[in-house]
Amino acid sequence: MNNKTVLIVEDEEKINKMVCDYFKFNKFEVISATDGMEAVEKFNENVDLVILDIMLPKLDGFTVLSRIRKKSDVPVIMLTARGEDEDILMGYELKVDDYMIKPFNLDILIAKAKVLLYRIDSMVKGADKGTEDILKYNGVKLDKLKMQVYIEEEEIELEPKQFEILKYLMENKNIVISREKLLEEKWGYDYYGNTRVVDAQIKKLRKNLKDKSYCIKTVFGTGYKFDVE
């Protein structure tokens, strides 16, 4: 996990410094605020985690959280000295992620912070991986895992070889792929046919792509490319 930035919002100077120092010791970048207004002003898109006290001058923690939630789903751990059910329920209604009741153990606070950030990172990586399995350009969407192709969200049927050709062209969008390269990649080194088989499959593929057939451009004397503007 790369260095993360934490915004620590606590009006008690001693607790603020103690928490800030402990997060710094654990390789976090730290931003400190001692009242609710300062917290709102210092919060920005680079903040990865917020440690937020409920009882604050100027704006209370619930108001700060409400304002943060209008622009971000950043994980938030709230600190409370009271531990009252009403406070905890209010926080969860405002989508707080976790609570620490004062006095608290700093090691547990750090552990909670790391678990939250690990989960966020895992979800982001999972989302990124999912997007790698989906190719979508010019209204043509190809799902590698499901081996499905859609035109403007309407599924179309392709033969396996046409699917593989389209996938290869979309993976290499705007790059001219020679007929020989397509033959090698999609029919294999041991295939002794000529490049006419490529042209025949491209013709069928274009027909199946209907009004999106223009996406596959012929580059005279060379081959084909999936053209993305």
Rank of each mutant, 00 (worst) to 15 (best):
A127M: 15
D53C: 06
D133S: 13
D53H: 03
L89G: 00
L169F: 07
F23C: 02
S72E: 01
V219I: 14
V96F: 00
N44G: 12
V64W: 10
L182K: 07
N105P: 02
K125Y: 11
I120P: 03
I15D: 05
V40T: 12
V198Q: 03
S122V: 13
A113W: 01
V6T: 01
N194I: 08
K4P: 00
K210T: 02
T222E: 14
I177C: 01
F104S: 00
K125V: 11
K146P: 06
K17E: 12
V176I: 14
V115W: 11
K95D: 07
V219R: 06
F43G: 05
D143K: 08
I51P: 03
I175P: 01
V50H: 04
G223H: 06
Y92K: 08
Y150S: 01
L106R: 02
Q162H: 09
P57Y: 07
E13H: 11
T5M: 04
K58A: 08
K71I: 11
Y99M: 02
V96I: 09
D48Y: 00
K212D: 02
F220S: 12
I151F: 04
R119P: 09
D53Y: 04
D48M: 03
K173I: 01
G130V: 05
E29Q: 10
R69A: 00
E157T: 14
I120R: 15
Y137H: 10
L56Q: 05
L135I: 12
K125D: 11
R206A: 01
S122F: 13
G193R: 07
E10L: 00
D35F: 01
I175E: 15
K186R: 15
M1H: 10
E153Y: 07
E93Q: 08
N44E: 10
L79H: 03
I108P: 05
R179P: 02
V115L: 15
M37E: 15
N3E: 14
P57D: 09
E153N: 14
D121R: 08
Y137L: 00
N44M: 07
M123V: 15
T222L: 13
D60G: 09
Y191T: 02
L56R: 07
V197L: 12
K125M: 10
K17R: 14
P160E: 06
L89M: 12
V47S: 06
L106N: 04
Y214G: 05
N194P: 04
K181M: 12
I156W: 00
V6F: 02
K141L: 13
A111I: 05
F220A: 11
V74C: 00
Y192E: 13
L209K: 03
V96R: 00
D199E: 11
Y137R: 06
M147T: 12
G193F: 06
D211I: 06
K167L: 15
A33S: 09
V50M: 09
D85C: 02
T131M: 14
T34K: 05
A200N: 14
E38C: 01
A113K: 08
I77M: 05
I110G: 09
A127R: 15
N194H: 08
L52M: 08
V149E: 03
R179M: 11
C20L: 02
D35K: 03
K203F: 10
A200P: 00
F104D: 03
I175V: 15
K210S: 07
G36Q: 01
